[in-house]
Write a protein that binds this DNA or RNA. Structure first.
Lengths: 178, 178
DNA sequence: CCTAACATGTAAACTGTTACATGATTCC
DNA sequence: GGAATCATGTAACAGTTTACATGTTAGG
């Protein structure tokens, strides 16, 4: 059996955190891992089917009227598979694509005033993300912690620390450029 | 004329910073923007051709023996195109895919000792990146600053601040988990 | 009654990477 | 003479997103 693609583990993990439908998975991803891992809706349904074929999730039909609908849960093998993947310390890599940083890198072609504008835009973005993390992700992570899962909150704290650092750097740079 | 894909602007920017061949572009990207923007070699050559067709770069053949080789430089229109793109404050978005954070998010399935191991691995990664930035990117950015381009160094400082923040958070979390 | 949110699914397009092939030059 | 580095290029593949299509349920 071929190794699963990463989005499959996201699905397994979200099912373990209480998601029941593909739609739930998408909602939870958007509300929690979105800033360090996204997944598009079009990937979810085919993957759920595959996971069911491989016996890692169990789905049963719960149609609403004429509309098909499936509710899923992890099987024991699915949970084992998730644990094996989580344990693999081998891949903790990351990939960042940051247009703000890329444009700053090339910004010497611009007028100083334009660079300042750009840095301000980067700071505004960091502020927006922090606001979203605080308003939308925090309550969800706090609820999970109260249910005994502490690590979503730890991850959120890391996300906040990262964006805070970006925010502080932008503020410093703005002062230098002014 | 359709808007160019982002890697095309990376090429324009790198040509402006002194790259002459496709190979140069790849080398500069690997040595400088790699931690916030990568580009694969296979994308570069077709894009250079396209940029030449659109009059944004000028290439001339400088073969080595029987091996073809092209040296490129920015045209005025190419530089204008770069500036227009840089000015567009509309897209300063970013995309992060961080397996370390994703696994931390789901880490409640693991034993506490395993989580600690994982956080240590994340910290080790941050340390490695910081080392690379300091050893490989710093000299290059410093040389560019001495040549009058200060923003590659600013971008590097932001990268360092980000990884430093990650490192500090991991250290804190390790202490909490121990 | 209408809109928003719930919910599933597919086809096509796009983006990016991997793997391979080729050959020159420089340094040990 | 062999290895590493310089240098270009393509074909196949994998991964991801966009756009569309469809229908339900709950609330204002």
């Amino acid at each position: 059996m071929a190794a699963l693609p990463t989005p499959a583990y996201v699905i397994l993990g979200m099912l373990r955190l209480g998601a029941r439908s593909g739609y739930d998975v998408k909602r939870l991803v958007d509300g929690s891992t979105r800033y360090f891992w996204t997944i598009s809706q079009a990937q979810i349904y085919p993957l759920l089917k595959r996971l069911e074929d491989e016996g890692l999730v169990r789905g049963r039909a719960e149609p609403r009227g004429r509309r098909p609908r499936r509710a899923y849960e992890l099987t024991r093998r699915g949970e084992q598979e998730l644990v094996v993947w989580l344990r693999d310390q081998h891949d903790v890599g990351y990939e960042l694509r940051d247009l703000g940083m890329l444009k700053l890198f090339f910004a010497d072609v611009l007028e100083p005033a334009e660079v300042l504008e750009h840095v301000r835009a980067m700071r505004a973005r960091a502020e927006q993300v922090l606001e979203h993390l605080d308003r939308d992700s925090q309550p969800y992570a706090a609820a999970l912690r109260d249910a005994g899962r502490r690590h979503p909150l730890d991850t959120l704290r890391l996300g906040i620390a990262l964006h805070q650092a970006a925010l502080e750097f932008c503020t410093t740079l703005e002062a230098e450029l002014a």
